[in-house]
């Protein structure tokens, strides 16, 4: 299993109801269903991903995330997962609201644009960064809302959300002392575990 998926796998509790947005070939949901009695759905638009999920016995729904999650009820899930899809959405901020409407907690991973190699590309070479986590050219990239580790943290703070866990990894999602010390500089991939702030009832 991909290293970021393994980390998420470990974070998800036994028996949780999970929504996996951009679930790919269903590897994560299959493992969670098999080992942890996790139930839920994957959302995907890639035909090959959908076929792979169906063949694995993972419940997958062909759905464009940009159309929102209106077909999922408030608090219907324990956790919403979204790996490497946030930066490809039209409105990542609204998706974050949607995710925390259907569940109290979400786990999000995205490429950290402030990663030193990306900075080097832009700052010294003067080109849009191309890397393992950002493999596309500027003209054909699906990643229309790139952000940094710090940007996302700021968004969570602005929204009054609670960041219960955060991690970064290099391209292979392996942590090291540098990523722990300066995550915004040395982390290639950011992983956040976010939950709703206190309800604004009072």
């Amino acid at each position: 299993m991909r290293a970021d998926l393994k980390l998420i796998y470990d974070w998800i509790p036994q028996g949780a109801r999970v929504l996996d947005l951009g679930c790919g070939d269903g590897t994560l949901l299959e493992a969670l269903g098999r080992d942890k009695d996790v139930r839920g759905y994957g959302l995907e638009i890639d035909p090959d991903g959908i076929t792979a999920c169906v063949e694995r016995g993972v419940s997958v729904i062909e759905q464009d995330l940009d159309e929102g999650l209106t077909n999922f009820e408030d608090n219907a899930y324990d956790l919403v997962v979204m790996t490497q899809a946030l930066q490809a959405l039209r409105r990542p901020d609204k998706m974050l609201d949607e995710m925390l409407r259907v569940a109290n907690e979400c786990i999000i991973t995205f490429p950290n644009f402030a990663y030193w190699r990306h900075r080097f590309y832009l700052g010294f070479k003067g080109y849009m960064p191309v890397s393992k986590s950002l493999p596309h050219a500027w003209y054909d990239t699906p990643n229309i809302h790139l952000s940094t580790f710090n940007d996302f943290e700021q968004l969570c703070l602005d929204k009054g959300l609670i960041i219960s866990d955060r991690a970064v990894g290099n391209g292979d999602h392996e942590g090291s002392w540098t990523t722990r010390l300066w995550p915004n500089l040395f982390g290639e991939t950011a992983i956040f575990r976010v939950s709703r702030g206190k309800p604004a009832t009072d």
Binding site: R39, Y41, P47, I50, C53, V54, V58, S59, V60, I61, E62, Q63, N71, F72, E73, A76
Partner: peptide
């Protein structure tokens, strides 16, 4: 078909959907 799929999801039933 989405009506059916959405209802199955609301009912918590295992369902896969492809258009």
């Amino acid at each position: 078909s989405r009506e059916l799929v959405d209802a199955l999801v609301r009912a918590g039933k295992p369902v896969s959907y492809a258009e």
